[in-house]
């Protein structure tokens, strides 16, 4: 069965004076997918999100959003919501008044306000002025404002900034539910754990170009060597087993064993540890696969540095 596309961008180029912000960017996001957009500062993430929200139009390339070609600024179709550079809130209004004013602006009934406030966990502060809101609360209210429009494409710039664990739980829950209901979500983040937890696919931007785009699983290649941190019941014996396993490189060997290995070699090592009657209490990558790939794809090479 065909999956409808929420975003189809081809050859997007955007310049600000002499600065090339986006250079031949391709992006495909089907409906119902949570898509991560990562990249170092200045990679072009916010510019791309701005194009998707319709704040600007690309210098060249084609952009289709929810099946509609976008040819000029502020002409994205209905059903697109979100924010870049933080949500726009008016501090003299309460949370509820902010949402009611927005609903009124769009000519929508204010019936869903309580519901969206509950979804993002702001019911208790609904009648407080947003002047005193923390960054996390502002982010959640921004998400609530986007939800009011019942979006089919949700664009979020660093949505987990400033969120406490409870806030993060609410936001994760909302985004996951939206995706399950068919809404495409594109979020940028500097936090790889957020992207890994939420996104099924990711696009890595580096200096305005797409360095990688695809499923997370493809990003962390099985044959790439990664660092792992292993906590066992007998660190000394574990070190001996690891030292005797072909393909394992011991990086650190104090109370916690840190090794470098590929995924197949790691599998062998775990089997051997268990066979040696050593309990494996914790096994985790030192750097997440996504973060490792991110660093590998976006950090300048020695050759580039020498230039």
């Amino acid at each position: 069965m065909d999956t409808p596309l929420a975003v189809r961008a081809r050859g997007i180029r955007q310049c600000f004076g002499d600065v090339v912000a986006l250079d031949g960017v391709e992006l495909t996001v089907p409906a119902g997918q949570v898509h991560g957009l990562v990249g170092p500062n200045g990679a072009g993430k916010t510019t791309l999100l701005g194009l998707l929200l319709g704040l600007a139009v690309a210098d060249s390339g084609t952009l289709e959003i929810l099946g509609t070609p976008v040819g000029r600024a502020l002409a994205v179709p209905e059903g697109v919501a979100g924010f870049v550079d933080g949500p726009g809130l008016y501090p003299s209004l309460t949370a509820r008044q902010n949402l009611a004013a927005l609903a009124s602006l769009r000519g929508a009934p204010a019936l869903g306000i309580d519901d969206v406030l509950e979804q993002v966990g702001l019911t208790d502060v609904a009648d407080d002025r947003t002047r005193g809101f923390s960054l996390g609360m502002r982010q959640r209210l921004g998400l609530a404002a986007a939800l009011l429009t019942k979006p089919r494409l949700l664009i979020l710039d660093e949505p987990s900034n400033g969120l406490d664990p409870a806030g993060k739980h609410h936001v994760y829950g909302v985004l996951t539910r939206l995706a399950a209901e068919g809404t495409a979500v594109i979020l940028s983040s500097h936090r790889m754990d957020d992207v890994e937890a939420l996104c099924s696919e990711v696009t890595i931007l580096s200096t305005g170009r797409v360095a990688f785009s695809g499923p997370l699983a493809e990003l962390a290649g099985e044959n790439d060597e990664l660092g792992y941190r292993i906590v066992t019941s007998d660190p000394r014996a574990a070190r001996t087993v690891a030292g005797g396993t072909a393909g394992v490189r011991i990086v650190d060997e104090h109370d916690v064993l840190v090794i470098a290995a590929t995924v197949p070699v790691l599998d062998v090592l775990v089997k051997r540890l268990v066979q040696a009657d050593i309990a494996v209490r914790e096994l985790a990558p030192v750097v997440s696969p996504l973060e490792a790939a991110f660093l590998a794809l976006t950090e300048p090479t020695d050759l580039e540095i020498s230039r």
Partner: peptide, 21 residues
Amino acid sequence: TAIVAETPVVTEVSVARGYRF
């Protein structure tokens, strides 16, 4: 994948609503 067939309509926010806002 395929492009969504329907073309969503862009609803304009009237000056009256903007004025009230």
